[in-house]
């Protein structure tokens, strides 16, 4: 009897009683239901910032007279990881003065990256991004005549080259006032130009012409400025 009284009293106080245990189980079930039913809310609950979209541009590219814009979309369900983000980056430069023997400009380029925020604080904090980009480049390159001689002229012709690049960059996305994005990044790209090949018509001398300016490895860096949007 005494035990039942104590148990009743404890249940009123909410400590250690079977009813309390039952209530705790019910809470957990509720949370689980919440997870299944409103996963987005759960994600935002764990995040420090409920933003799904980030848009912006690379201010460093402007100095090189390139337009480089980016869009970042938080899609974190497909691998079961909370820190996944898909980012698209596009570039479209303005025309430049022609410089012989070098790639002149990117006519159009686009890329797709998977971005990982290891601290689970997407879209802010340090991140690693891996992806690829496909670009059309405008170049003026020398054409080797059929029968090159010491007095040959090697004319420079305009060529459009397409190139695939595998990229890897590390960066840090700061979001000031929950809206304004500042994102310095740096990394490298492996480049594979594959539309231009010229066999030199010289006996016993064949060579693949690497398009000048399309180095096998290039450095990528920039400072993205933008907005985080719900």
């Amino acid at each position: 009897m005494k035990n039942w009284i104590l148990l009743y009293a404890a249940s009123l106080l909410g400590i250690g009683s079977p009813s309390l245990l039952l209530a705790q189980k019910k809470d957990k079930i509720k949370i689980d239901r919440s997870l299944r039913d409103t996963s987005a809310r759960y994600v935002f609950h764990l995040d420090n910032l409920p933003r799904r979209h980030v848009v912006g541009f690379n201010i460093v590219a402007l100095f090189a007279r390139n337009a480089h814009v980016f869009y970042e979309w938080r899609a974190r369900s497909f691998l079961g990881l909370r820190q996944q983000v898909i980012a698209g980056r596009f570039s479209q430069p303005s025309p430049r003065t022609e410089v012989p023997y070098k790639v002149q400009s990117t006519l159009l380029g686009y890329g797709l990256e998977l971005v990982f925020y290891p601290l689970n604080r997407a879209p802010r904090g340090p991140y690693l991004a891996f992806g690829g980009s496909y670009r059309w480049l405008n170049a003026r390159i020398p054409v080797i005549p059929d029968d090159p001689s010491p007095e040959s002229s090697f004319p420079l012709v305009r060529k459009k080259i397409s190139m695939f690049s595998a990229t890897g960059v590390a960066g840090w996305q700061f979001i000031a006032g929950n809206w304004f994005v500042v994102n310095p990044f740096a990394g490298a790209a492996l480049n594979f130009p594959f539309t231009y090949f010229q066999e030199i018509p010289v006996p016993d001398y064949q060579d693949q012409v690497r398009v000048p300016g399309t180095a096998p490895v290039t450095v990528r860096f920039g400072l993205l400025l933008g907005l985080a949007i719900k």
Binding site: P142, I144, D147, P148, S149, S152, I200, V202, Y205, P212
Partner: peptide, 9 residues
């Protein structure tokens, strides 16, 4: 050098 090409001379 962007290119060196040994000539057939």
């Amino acid at each position: 050098a962007k290119r060196t090409l040994v000539l057939p001379v």
